[in-house]
Design a binder for these strands. Structure first.
Length: 112
DNA sequence: TCTATGACTCCGG
DNA sequence: CCCGGAGCCATAG
């Protein structure tokens, strides 16, 4: 019970730390949280983030930069528009130059 | 208590 | 290079 809340809270915390115009992957967050094999759980946490609008879930995509969670947003292209609004180009539900926009919490938050 | 499912990833053919 | 299957772990039914 408490652990799950802590897990969710951690996911939210990391999600909030994602810089403007940057994106990361579920696996990267999971790795940072110490549950690298639970990338799916990160997605689950995002699903629960509906109650926390402060969570920029649109900045979280799969490791290919694919907007897998796009369908989980209200609109059909809301996620894409939010990202494009941050200067990120989306094509075919995919983040262009994903490698350049990628933000790895495990590295970025650790080296500092 | 057990089974099914998923906003993922990795590995093999 | 593209496609399919298995692993992983937490939540819901």
């Amino acid at each position: 019970m408490k652990q799950s809340e802590n897990f969710f809270e951690k996911v939210y915390e990391v999600a909030k730390l994602i810089p403007f115009g940057r994106v990361t992957s579920y696996g990267a967050i999971a790795k940072y949280l110490g549950t690298a094999r639970s990338a799916r759980m990160v997605g689950w946490a995002m699903n629960a983030s509906h109650s926390n609008q402060d969570i920029p879930a649109h900045r979280v995509v799969n490791r290919n930069g694919l907007l897998t969670g796009k369908l989980h947003f209200d609109g059909t292209n809301l996620m894409q528009q939010l990202l494009e609004n941050e200067g990120i180009t989306i094509k075919e539900n995919q983040v262009q130059n994903f490698k350049e926009h990628f933000w790895d919490p495990y590295i970025e938050l650790n080296k500092k």
